[in-house]
Protein backbone atom coordinates (compact mmCIF):
# COMPACT_ATOMS: atom_id res chain seq x y z
CA UNK A 1 0.00 0.00 0.00
CA UNK A 2 2.77 2.40 0.92
CA UNK A 3 4.09 3.07 -2.60
CA UNK A 4 0.66 4.37 -3.62
CA UNK A 5 1.29 7.26 -1.30
CA UNK A 6 3.41 9.00 -3.89
CA UNK A 7 0.24 9.75 -5.82
CA UNK A 8 -1.01 13.16 -4.60
CA UNK A 9 -4.60 12.14 -5.32
CA UNK A 10 -4.41 9.03 -3.15
CA UNK A 11 -2.40 10.96 -0.62
CA UNK A 12 -5.47 13.12 -0.03
CA UNK A 13 -7.33 10.08 1.30
CA UNK A 14 -6.76 8.00 4.39
CA UNK A 15 -6.12 5.04 2.17
CA UNK A 16 -4.42 2.78 4.72
CA UNK A 17 -6.75 3.15 7.67
CA UNK A 18 -10.17 3.95 6.30
CA UNK A 19 -10.78 2.01 3.10
CA UNK A 20 -12.84 0.18 1.91
CA UNK A 21 -15.51 2.83 2.45
CA UNK A 22 -19.10 2.21 3.54
CA UNK A 23 -20.84 3.67 0.47
CA UNK A 24 -22.94 1.34 -1.71
CA UNK A 25 -21.51 0.19 -5.02
CA UNK A 26 -22.50 2.67 -7.72
CA UNK A 27 -23.32 5.52 -5.32
CA UNK A 28 -22.66 9.04 -6.64
CA UNK A 29 -21.12 10.27 -3.39
CA UNK A 30 -17.76 8.66 -4.24
CA UNK A 31 -17.69 10.52 -7.56
CA UNK A 32 -18.43 13.78 -5.77
CA UNK A 33 -15.71 13.17 -3.17
CA UNK A 34 -13.09 12.26 -5.79
CA UNK A 35 -13.99 15.25 -7.95
CA UNK A 36 -13.79 17.58 -4.98
CA UNK A 37 -10.30 16.26 -4.15
CA UNK A 38 -9.15 16.76 -7.75
CA UNK A 39 -10.21 20.39 -7.47
CA UNK A 40 -8.26 20.77 -4.21
CA UNK A 41 -5.20 19.45 -6.04
CA UNK A 42 -5.72 21.65 -9.10
CA UNK A 43 -6.14 24.75 -6.96
CA UNK A 44 -3.13 23.86 -4.84
CA UNK A 45 -5.19 23.77 -1.63
CA UNK A 46 -2.85 22.20 0.92
CA UNK A 47 -4.08 19.36 3.13
CA UNK A 48 -2.88 21.27 6.18
CA UNK A 49 -4.79 24.44 5.34
CA UNK A 50 -8.14 22.80 4.70
CA UNK A 51 -10.98 21.73 6.96
CA UNK A 52 -13.86 19.71 5.53
CA UNK A 53 -16.99 19.79 7.67
CA UNK A 54 -20.07 17.60 7.42
CA UNK A 55 -23.23 16.68 9.29
CA UNK A 56 -24.75 13.20 9.35
CA UNK A 57 -25.79 11.06 6.39
CA UNK A 58 -24.14 9.01 3.64
CA UNK A 59 -22.87 12.20 1.98
CA UNK A 60 -21.57 13.44 5.30
CA UNK A 61 -19.41 10.33 5.68
CA UNK A 62 -16.98 11.88 3.19
CA UNK A 63 -15.14 13.63 6.03
CA UNK A 64 -14.04 10.26 7.40
CA UNK A 65 -11.98 9.45 4.30
CA UNK A 66 -10.04 12.65 3.65
CA UNK A 67 -6.55 13.22 4.98
CA UNK A 68 -6.92 16.79 6.19
CA UNK A 69 -8.65 18.31 9.22
CA UNK A 70 -12.13 16.82 9.15
CA UNK A 71 -15.16 17.57 11.29
CA UNK A 72 -18.07 15.12 11.31
CA UNK A 73 -20.63 17.11 13.31
CA UNK A 74 -24.28 16.54 14.20
CA UNK A 75 -27.12 15.99 11.74
CA UNK A 76 -27.77 19.34 10.07
CA UNK A 77 -25.19 21.26 12.07
CA UNK A 78 -22.19 21.37 9.75
CA UNK A 79 -22.75 25.04 8.93
CA UNK A 80 -22.83 26.47 12.47
CA UNK A 81 -19.78 24.32 13.29
CA UNK A 82 -18.04 25.65 10.18
CA UNK A 83 -19.02 29.15 11.31
CA UNK A 84 -17.08 28.56 14.52
CA UNK A 85 -14.02 27.42 12.60
CA UNK A 86 -14.24 30.42 10.31
CA UNK A 87 -14.45 32.77 13.31
CA UNK A 88 -11.39 31.07 14.78
CA UNK A 89 -9.37 30.75 11.62
CA UNK A 90 -10.56 33.10 8.86
CA UNK A 91 -7.44 32.09 6.93
CA UNK A 92 -8.44 28.41 6.68
CA UNK A 93 -10.20 27.01 3.65
CA UNK A 94 -13.46 25.52 4.87
CA UNK A 95 -15.66 23.26 2.76
CA UNK A 96 -18.99 21.87 3.95
CA UNK A 97 -20.44 18.74 2.37
CA UNK A 98 -23.76 17.07 3.13
CA UNK A 99 -26.96 15.60 1.83
CA UNK A 100 -30.24 17.26 0.88
CA UNK A 101 -31.76 16.09 4.18
CA UNK A 102 -28.84 17.27 6.26
CA UNK A 103 -28.49 20.70 4.69
CA UNK A 104 -32.01 21.52 3.50
CA UNK A 105 -34.26 19.86 6.13
CA UNK A 106 -32.78 19.73 9.63
CA UNK A 107 -30.02 22.19 8.68
CA UNK A 108 -32.19 24.43 6.49
CA UNK A 109 -32.25 27.30 8.94
CA UNK A 110 -28.47 27.29 9.29
CA UNK A 111 -28.13 27.16 5.51
CA UNK A 112 -30.14 30.30 4.85
CA UNK A 113 -28.53 32.21 7.70
CA UNK A 114 -25.00 31.24 6.71
CA UNK A 115 -25.79 32.48 3.20
CA UNK A 116 -27.23 35.67 4.63
CA UNK A 117 -24.10 36.24 6.71
CA UNK A 118 -21.96 35.56 3.66
CA UNK A 119 -19.48 33.30 5.39
CA UNK A 120 -16.44 32.72 3.27
CA UNK A 121 -16.88 29.01 2.58
CA UNK A 122 -18.19 26.54 0.01
CA UNK A 123 -21.14 24.23 0.57
CA UNK A 124 -21.52 21.10 -1.54
CA UNK A 125 -25.07 19.75 -1.35
CA UNK A 126 -25.23 16.16 -2.54
CA UNK A 127 -28.84 15.97 -3.67
CA UNK A 128 -29.99 12.38 -4.15
CA UNK A 129 -33.63 13.33 -3.47
CA UNK A 130 -33.79 11.06 -0.45
CA UNK A 131 -32.49 10.21 3.01
CA UNK A 132 -29.99 7.54 2.02
CA UNK A 133 -28.50 6.68 5.37
CA UNK A 134 -31.81 6.05 7.12
CA UNK A 135 -33.29 4.00 4.29
CA UNK A 136 -34.93 6.08 1.58
CA UNK A 137 -37.47 8.30 3.30
CA UNK A 138 -38.67 11.40 1.43
CA UNK A 139 -36.59 14.54 1.81
CA UNK A 140 -37.29 18.24 1.14
CA UNK A 141 -36.08 17.72 -2.44
CA UNK A 142 -38.15 14.61 -3.24
CA UNK A 143 -40.50 15.65 -6.07
CA UNK A 144 -44.25 15.64 -5.37
CA UNK A 145 -45.99 12.30 -5.94
CA UNK A 146 -42.81 10.27 -5.94
CA UNK A 147 -42.62 7.24 -3.69
CA UNK A 148 -40.35 6.85 -0.69
CA UNK A 149 -40.07 4.65 2.40
CA UNK A 150 -42.27 7.11 4.28
CA UNK A 151 -44.40 8.00 1.25
CA UNK A 152 -45.56 4.58 0.03
CA UNK A 153 -48.50 6.15 -1.83
CA UNK A 154 -46.60 9.13 -3.15
CA UNK A 155 -45.20 12.31 -1.62
CA UNK A 156 -47.88 14.96 -1.12
CA UNK A 157 -45.39 17.70 -0.23
CA UNK A 158 -43.80 20.15 -2.63
CA UNK A 159 -40.03 20.15 -3.04
CA UNK A 160 -37.27 22.69 -2.59
CA UNK A 161 -35.07 24.01 -5.36
CA UNK A 162 -31.73 24.10 -3.52
CA UNK A 163 -30.10 26.63 -5.86
CA UNK A 164 -33.07 28.96 -5.79
CA UNK A 165 -33.04 29.07 -2.00
CA UNK A 166 -29.27 29.61 -1.94
CA UNK A 167 -29.55 32.55 -4.26
CA UNK A 168 -32.53 34.06 -2.45
CA UNK A 169 -30.74 33.74 0.90
CA UNK A 170 -27.77 35.71 -0.38
CA UNK A 171 -25.15 33.26 -1.68
CA UNK A 172 -22.46 34.88 -3.83
CA UNK A 173 -22.14 31.92 -6.18
CA UNK A 174 -24.61 29.13 -6.98
CA UNK A 175 -24.09 26.27 -9.42
CA UNK A 176 -25.58 22.86 -10.18
CA UNK A 177 -24.05 19.80 -11.74
CA UNK A 178 -24.45 16.04 -11.63
CA UNK A 179 -22.31 12.99 -10.93
CA UNK A 180 -22.61 12.04 -14.60
CA UNK A 181 -21.05 15.31 -15.81
CA UNK A 182 -17.78 14.83 -13.95
CA UNK A 183 -15.68 17.37 -15.89
CA UNK A 184 -18.49 19.90 -15.56
CA UNK A 185 -18.88 19.12 -11.87
CA UNK A 186 -15.18 19.69 -11.38
CA UNK A 187 -15.42 23.07 -13.07
CA UNK A 188 -18.38 24.10 -10.89
CA UNK A 189 -16.65 23.10 -7.65
CA UNK A 190 -13.53 24.90 -8.81
CA UNK A 191 -15.41 28.14 -9.49
CA UNK A 192 -17.17 27.88 -6.14
CA UNK A 193 -13.91 27.38 -4.25
CA UNK A 194 -12.39 30.38 -6.00
CA UNK A 195 -15.24 32.67 -5.01
CA UNK A 196 -14.64 34.90 -2.01
CA UNK A 197 -17.87 34.49 -0.04
CA UNK A 198 -20.66 31.98 0.45
CA UNK A 199 -20.76 29.62 -2.53
CA UNK A 200 -23.00 26.62 -3.15
CA UNK A 201 -22.75 23.69 -5.55
CA UNK A 202 -25.73 21.38 -5.78
CA UNK A 203 -24.62 17.98 -7.03
CA UNK A 204 -27.44 15.83 -8.35
CA UNK A 205 -26.31 12.36 -7.39
CA UNK A 206 -27.58 8.81 -7.77
CA UNK A 207 -28.68 6.68 -4.83
CA UNK A 208 -29.39 3.41 -6.60
CA UNK A 209 -30.03 1.61 -3.32
CA UNK A 210 -33.06 3.66 -2.31
CA UNK A 211 -34.10 6.49 -4.59
CA UNK A 212 -33.36 4.50 -7.75
CA UNK A 213 -35.24 1.51 -6.43
CA UNK A 214 -38.29 3.45 -5.24
CA UNK A 215 -38.60 5.29 -8.55
CA UNK A 216 -37.82 2.21 -10.64
CA UNK A 217 -34.86 3.96 -12.23
CA UNK A 218 -32.70 0.85 -12.38
CA UNK A 219 -29.10 0.33 -11.36
CA UNK A 220 -26.31 2.90 -11.08
CA UNK A 221 -25.52 2.83 -14.81
CA UNK A 222 -29.18 3.42 -15.71
CA UNK A 223 -29.34 6.22 -13.17
CA UNK A 224 -26.30 7.88 -14.71
CA UNK A 225 -28.05 7.72 -18.09
CA UNK A 226 -31.08 9.26 -16.40
CA UNK A 227 -28.88 12.09 -15.05
CA UNK A 228 -27.47 12.60 -18.53
CA UNK A 229 -30.79 12.76 -20.38
CA UNK A 230 -32.58 14.75 -17.68
CA UNK A 231 -29.94 17.51 -17.59
CA UNK A 232 -29.90 20.64 -19.67
CA UNK A 233 -27.20 23.29 -19.75
CA UNK A 234 -28.12 26.67 -18.33
CA UNK A 235 -27.00 28.29 -21.60
CA UNK A 236 -29.74 26.44 -23.44
CA UNK A 237 -32.70 27.63 -21.40
CA UNK A 238 -34.36 31.04 -21.34
CA UNK A 239 -35.08 31.09 -17.61
CA UNK A 240 -33.33 28.48 -15.49
CA UNK A 241 -35.66 29.07 -12.55
CA UNK A 242 -38.84 28.15 -14.40
CA UNK A 243 -37.66 24.87 -15.94
CA UNK A 244 -39.55 21.85 -14.63
CA UNK A 245 -38.69 18.16 -15.11
CA UNK A 246 -35.10 18.95 -16.06
CA UNK A 247 -31.89 19.48 -14.09
CA UNK A 248 -30.57 22.83 -15.23
CA UNK A 249 -26.81 22.55 -14.83
CA UNK A 250 -24.18 25.25 -14.86
CA UNK A 251 -23.53 28.50 -13.02
CA UNK A 252 -26.95 29.77 -11.95
CA UNK A 253 -25.85 32.78 -9.98
CA UNK A 254 -22.52 34.57 -9.76
CA UNK A 255 -22.67 38.01 -8.30
CA UNK A 256 -20.11 40.68 -7.75
CA UNK A 257 -18.30 39.86 -4.52
CA UNK A 258 -19.06 41.81 -1.38
CA UNK A 259 -16.76 41.50 1.66
CA UNK A 260 -17.47 38.29 3.60
CA UNK A 261 -18.48 38.18 7.25
CA UNK A 262 -15.03 37.86 8.83
CA UNK A 263 -13.67 40.82 6.90
CA UNK A 264 -16.66 43.01 7.83
CA UNK A 265 -16.31 41.99 11.46
CA UNK A 266 -12.68 43.05 11.48
CA UNK A 267 -13.57 46.40 9.90
CA UNK A 268 -16.34 46.94 12.44
CA UNK A 269 -13.95 46.31 15.29
CA UNK A 270 -11.49 48.82 13.89
CA UNK A 271 -14.23 51.43 13.66
CA UNK A 272 -15.51 50.70 17.19
CA UNK A 273 -12.00 51.06 18.61
CA UNK A 274 -11.64 54.54 17.17
CA UNK A 275 -14.75 55.74 19.01
Amino acid sequence: MRELKNDPFLDFFRVDERFPHILCPGCGIGTTMATMVRVFLDLGIKQDELCVVSGIGCSSRVTGYLDCDTFHTLHGRALPAATGIKLARPDMKVVVIGGDGDIMAIGGNHFIHSARRNLDLTVIVVNNFTYGMTGGQYSPTTPTQERAATAPFGNVERSFNVCFIARAAGAMFVARSTTFHVAHLKKMIQLALQKNGFSVVEVISQCPTFYGRYQGLGDAVKMLEWLKTRSVDVEKVANPWSVKDRFVIGVLHDQEEVPPYSQLYQELRNRAKEK
Binding site: T73, R77, P80, A81, G84, R89, N109, H110
Partner: peptide, 15 residues
Amino acid sequence: IGSICCMNGATAAGL
Protein backbone atom coordinates in the same frame (compact mmCIF):
# COMPACT_ATOMS: atom_id res chain seq x y z
CA ILE B 1 -28.52 24.97 18.39
CA GLY B 2 -26.41 27.23 16.21
CA SER B 3 -24.75 28.75 19.28
CA ILE B 4 -23.55 25.46 20.75
CA CYS B 5 -22.47 24.04 17.38
CA CYS B 6 -20.61 27.26 16.55
CA MET B 7 -18.84 27.02 19.90
CA ASN B 8 -17.90 23.41 19.18
CA GLY B 9 -16.40 24.54 15.86
CA ALA B 10 -14.49 27.40 17.44
CA THR B 11 -13.14 25.14 20.20
CA ALA B 12 -12.08 22.52 17.69
CA ALA B 13 -10.06 25.27 16.04
CA GLY B 14 -8.33 26.06 19.33
CA LEU B 15 -10.39 28.87 20.81
